[in-house]
């Protein structure tokens, strides 16, 4: 029992962080599925959502600030796609990826300019940020909410993709980009919808993430962003359930490392961030398409 109550916080934190990564990872995996683009700016969209919350909640009540943050984040995601990726639709893939890196650089520098480089204190959201006790372990309520909220959102998303017309268009576009255009699918609106969904989930993810880790800095989006991408690759890029499972695995394993750190002689907490990448390299070597990825063949 002692062991249980000592280690439970790590499990809880792992599941919660996993849920937050999952919400970001969906944005990566959907964009990659359609555009074959690693959207390096996605992690920074997540950071921007955090900053928006900091500034908006300073002057608005929380119940107004939260929807506004979500709307603005979606708007930014939409704009980024229209301005930085759409003009490069016919360009080689590398150019689009470089453009994504450029956007990431721009958003980070913009955040640096606005914040002056200081970490901004994330506001406490009533009820969500309250301390609660679960089986004797003290934690914030957000830790418990995250996995459930994530699962609900993922189920809604899967229904959207399986049952609705726009979802069908998305599946068609990710199967074969060019043919779907010939079949009369308006590809630009499909891509915009993808970015809107991705940014929406990133905004929710940022609300949950920063309720736990309350310092928002301009570069804070990079690491969760990269890890979420790793999760997407791990689960098989293009597959939404894959990305979610990958994200939970990474979140939990990461916190397992912190848990193990109590028992081993060396300090291994440094490798918390590196672990995701180790997992990535291993999975790419043995199953390059990820856990649930489709087999791809090269055409000459």
């Amino acid at each position: 029992m002692d062991w249980f109550s000592r280690n439970l916080p790590y499990f809880l934190a792992g599941i919660s962080v996993g849920g937050q990564y999952a919400l970001i990872a969906i944005g990566y995996t959907m964009v990659y599925g359609i555009l074959r683009l690693i959207n390096f700016a996605h992690g920074d969209i997540f950071m921007v959502a955090g900053l928006l919350m900091v500034y908006l909640s300073a002057s608005l009540p929380v119940f107004l600030a939260i929807p506004l943050v979500i709307i603005l984040t979606v708007l930014i995601g939409f704009t980024v796609e229209r301005v930085a990726y759409k003009p490069l639709r016919q360009a080689p893939r590398m150019s689009v990826m470089i453009s994504a890196i450029g956007v990431s650089y721009l958003l980070q520098n913009l955040a640096l300019y606005i914040t002056g480089g200081l970490a901004q204190q994330y506001p406490a959201i009533p009820w969500v940020s309250d301390q609660i006790t679960v089986f004797g372990a003290s934690t914030k309520r957000v830790t418990v909410i995250t996995p459930f909220l994530t699962i609900i959102l993922v189920i809604l998303l899967v229904i959207l993709i399986k049952k609705t017309k726009i979802g069908m268009a998305m599946r068609a576009a990710s199967k074969d980009f060019e043919t779907s255009q010939l079949m009369g699918i308006r590809i630009n609106s499909v891509i915009s919808t993808t970015f809107i969904i991705g940014s929406f989930l990133a905004a929710i993810g940022s609300l949950l993430f920063f309720s736990n880790y309350t310092g928002v800095t301009p570069t804070i989006g990079t690491m969760p962003g990269l890890k979420a991408f790793v999760a997407a690759v791990f689960g098989g890029i293009g597959s939404i359930p894959g990305a979610v499972i990958g994200a939970f695995i990474i979140g939990i394993c990461e916190n397992m490392i912190m848990m193990l750190n109590q028992y081993v002689r060396f300090d291994i907490s440094n490798f918390k961030d590196a672990f995701a990448f180790l997992l990535l390299i291993i999975i790419l070597l043995f199953k390059p398409t990820g856990l649930f990825g489709e087999k791809q063949t090269d055409k000459v």
């Binding site: 790793v230 690759v233 990535l280 390299i281 790419l284």
Partner: peptide
């Protein structure tokens, strides 16, 4: 892309 992300990792 996979090479890019693996080397970054």
């Amino acid at each position: 892309d996979y090479l890019a992300i693996a080397t970054l990792g």
